[in-house]
């Protein structure tokens, strides 16, 4: 898989966003400073601990890390594919002897890296506002890689499906963000007093992602309290397993779309 061609495309994709920090890393950094300042410092002091022993500003960190990671992974992949289609320079890749799997994994991998870098930047910003100690390091790393790759994979589909730049905005603003905001970023499922509210929330895949990262970072998982008692303690691992499977499926769909030339060839 790590052929010279693959490495060349992966490197090209990395350089594209690394050389433009003003466009790629500064905006999420500034946005998250505002989030932590307003929701954490100004409002957070007036909000009770959503979970016992975890202050609101600390509780926010995993959700904001997930929000930044997945939206940047998605945005990078969708922009890279769509911009390449729009200006037709994606032909440089398509007319090369790279396999379709190599092309997809290079695009997904580089976009996931951008998402992960943004996630780390947000965690560092959070650390400036509140002390953070990582509870389950390996689990956290695995989860972050999976969700960054998953949304990079979705970004590829978005970039192939989009017909103009507005379509990309619509995907990000009207699909991704509502799911994230109702994905327990700013609240805990334990705060609901109605069972149906929890049940509806569990239909949102973001809940599992945010919860998994929160478990990795803070050691708290809502899933443990809402899952059936028999496997409650394994709930975060089940979430990670399902997310991993979903990521593989999405990347397989990406490869298929490249193979049939969806949005890429006439």
């Amino acid at each position: 898989m790590l052929s010279v061609g693959f490495r060349a495309l992966f490197r090209r994709e990395l350089l594209r966003f690394i050389r433009r920090p003003k466009n790629t890393f500064m905006p999420p950094a500034i946005t998250n400073v505002l989030y932590f300042a307003v929701f954490g410092l100004i409002l957070g002091g007036r909000i009770d601990e959503p979970v016992e022993g975890i202050g609101y500003i600390l509780f926010l960190v995993p959700g904001l890390v997930v929000l930044g990671t997945i939206s940047n992974a998605f945005e990078n992949a969708s922009f890279s594919i769509f911009h390449g289609r729009w200006n037709e320079y994606i032909h440089e890749t398509l007319t090369s002897p790279l396999s379709y799997a190599e092309m997809v994994v290079a695009y997904v991998g580089a976009s996931a890296v951008r998402g992960l870098i943004v996630g780390v930047i947000i965690a560092v910003i959070g650390r400036l506002f509140v002390p953070i100690s990582i509870e389950h390091g390996l689990f956290l790393v695995a989860t972050m890689i999976v969700i960054a790759s998953l949304f990079a994979g979705f970004g590829i589909i978005g970039g192939l499906v989009a017909r103009d730049f507005d379509d990309l905005t619509v995907m990000n603003q009207f699909i991704l963000r509502p799911l994230v905001f109702f994905g327990a970023v700013f609240y805990s499922l334990e705060m609901f007093d109605q069972a149906w509210q929890v049940q509806v929330s569990l239909l949102n895949p973001m809940v599992y992602m945010v919860d998994s990262v929160r478990y990795g970072l803070l050691g708290h998982s809502d899933m443990i309290s809402v899952a059936p008692t028999a496997y409650a303690e394994f709930a975060p691992y089940v979430s990670l397993g399902i997310l991993t499977l979903l990521t593989v499926v999405v990347i397989a769909v990406d490869v298929y779309l490249f193979k049939v030339g969806y949005g890429l060839t006439d």
Binding site: S3, R7, R11, R16, Y89, E92, P97, L98
Partner: peptide, 29 residues
């Protein structure tokens, strides 16, 4: 292929564009 359209990567200096293209074809860095 030298196509009719100017379908060239706008993000990089042209020397790097050529390096990338060669790389995709398996030419070491």
């Amino acid at each position: 292929l030298a196509p009719q359209e100017f379908n060239v990567d706008r993000f990089f200096p042209i020397r790097e564009v050529l390096e990338h293209k060669a790389g995709y074809h398996g030419v070491p860095e």
